[in-house]
C-alpha cells in the first residue's frame, strides 16, 4: 500500500519571517503538479517571535503529517540559529539551505553582568557547511535589502530551494505571483531569480552574500562590584530612581527613603546617580578582587 517514499522538506525560522508562506507555496505547487501533499505547522504561540517550523511532505502516499527525525531531505532555514536547532533532523546526505541572518531575541540579552555576551549560536556558516553533504548558506536578508524589499528574503530562499527540487521554474513563479501582495510581484520575481542564481553560481563564491561578518568578541573587562552610597538626609522620596532603575533593585522603605533592596542585581549602571535631582545617590565601582580581600 505504500508507494515511493515521500520527499520531506522542513522549513524553519522565526515568527513573522514567512515560514508559513514558503511552505504554503511549496504545498500549492505540489497540488498544481498533481502530487499528494501534507503540510503541518503550529499556529498560536509560535507566531509571537518564537521559533516556527513547517513540515512539507509530498509524493504518492503520505501518512504522518510530520517528518520523522532524521528523514528530512531538505532543511530550509530562514535564520541561522534556527538552522542549527533543526540540523539533527536532516538525513545523512540531506541538503541544508540557510539564510545566515541573525535574529537575536531579547532572551539572549538578559545577562546584566559586565562583560557578558549574548547567548547566541557561536557556530559559523563555514563550520556548519563542513558537516552537511550539501549546504547553501548565504545572506538572503542582505540580498533582499539590496533588491529593495527586505521582506523578499523568503522568496530568495524559495529560489534557492527551487534548484534542489524537480519542478519547472515557471510553475514556482505562477504560485508565488498568487501568494505575494500584487504590488510586490515584480520584486519577488527578481528575488526568486536571485535565489536560483546564487545556488547555481555558488562555486564561484558570490561576495558579499556568501557569509555574514563574524560576531565581534566581547571585550575583556575587570569584574567590578558596585557600591551604592545613599545620603538619607538628601532623599526627598520622589521615587524617580525606584521607577527608573533598570534592575528594579531600589525601593522606598517605611521612612520613604530609598534603599538598595537587591544588591546582587545592581550592575552599577549609574542611572540612579544621574537621575537623582538631589544628588542623594552615588555609585562607586570596586574591583572584585579587592572586595574579596576585604
Amino acid at each position: 500500500m505504500s508507494g515511493t517514499a515521500p520527499t520531506n522538506v522542513l522549513i524553519v525560522g522565526v515568527g513573522g519571517q514567512g515560514v508559513i508562506m514558503v511552505s504554503k507555496v511549496l504545498a500549492e505547487l505540489c497540488i498544481s503538479q498533481g502530487l499528494n501533499v501534507k503540510q503541518s505547522e503550529v499556529h498560536g504561540m509560535a507566531k509571537r517571535g518564537g521559533a516556527v517550523f513547517s513540515h512539507v511532505r509530498y509524493g504518492d502516499t503520505i501518512h504522518s503529517p510530520t517528518i520523522p527525525k532524521g528523514e528530512v531531505d531538505i532543511l530550509v532555514a530562514m535564520e541561522w540559529a534556527e538552522a542549527l536547532r533543526w540540523l539533527g533532523h536532516l538525513r545523512p546526505g540531506g541538503i541544508l539551505i540557510a539564510d545566515t541572518q541573525r535574529i537575536v531575541p531579547p532572551f539572549a540579552c538578559l545577562n546584566r553582568e559586565r562583560g557578558a555576551d549574548r547567548r547566541y549560536t557561536l557556530e559559523t556558516p563555514p563550520e556548519i557547511l563542513e558537516l552537511v553533504a550539501t549546504g547553501h548558506a548565504f545572506d538572503a536578508g542582505g540580498m533582499a535589502r539590496d533588491l529593495g524589499n527586505e521582506r523578499a528574503s523568503n522568496t530568495i530562499i524559495l529560489g534557492a530551494l527551487s534548484t534542489t527540487l524537480d519542478f519547472p521554474a515557471d510553475a514556482w513563479l505562477e504560485i508565488i505571483r498568487k501568494a505575494v501582495p500584487p504590488k510586490t510581484v515584480e520584486v519577488n520575481e527578481r528575488a526568486f531569480a536571485a535565489g536560483r542564481a546564487w545556488v547555481e553560481t555558488t562555486d564561484t563564491e558570490v561576495e558579499p552574500y556568501s557569509v555574514k561578518a563574524e560576531i565581534p568578541a566581547a571585550p575583556k573587562v575587570a569584574r567590578l562590584h558596585p557600591d551604592l552610597i545613599i545620603r538619607d538626609a538628601w532623599c526627598k522620596s520622589c521615587d524617580i530612581c525606584v521607577k527608573m532603575c533598570p534592575e528594579r533593585c531600589l525601593a522606598l522603605d517605611e521612612r520613604e527613603i530609598v534603599v538598595l533592596t537587591n544588591p546582587d542585581a545592581c550592575t552599577g549602571c549609574r542611572l540612579c546617580e544621574w537621575l537623582c535631582p538631589d544628588f542623594a545617590i552615588s555609585v562607586a565601582l570596586r574591583e572584585t578582587e579587592r572586595v574579596a580581600a576585604e
Binding site: 539533527g88 536532516l90 545523512p92 531575541p105 531579547p106 532572551f107
Partner: peptide, 18 residues
C-alpha cells in the same frame, strides 16, 4: 546505532509580546 546526529544546544527563543 548509526552516526550520532549533529546536535547543538538550541537557542532559547520563547514567544514574546510584539
Amino acid at each position: 546505532k548509526t552516526e550520532a546526529p549533529i546536535e547543538f544546544e538550541p537557542l532559547i527563543r520563547p514567544p514574546l509580546l510584539c
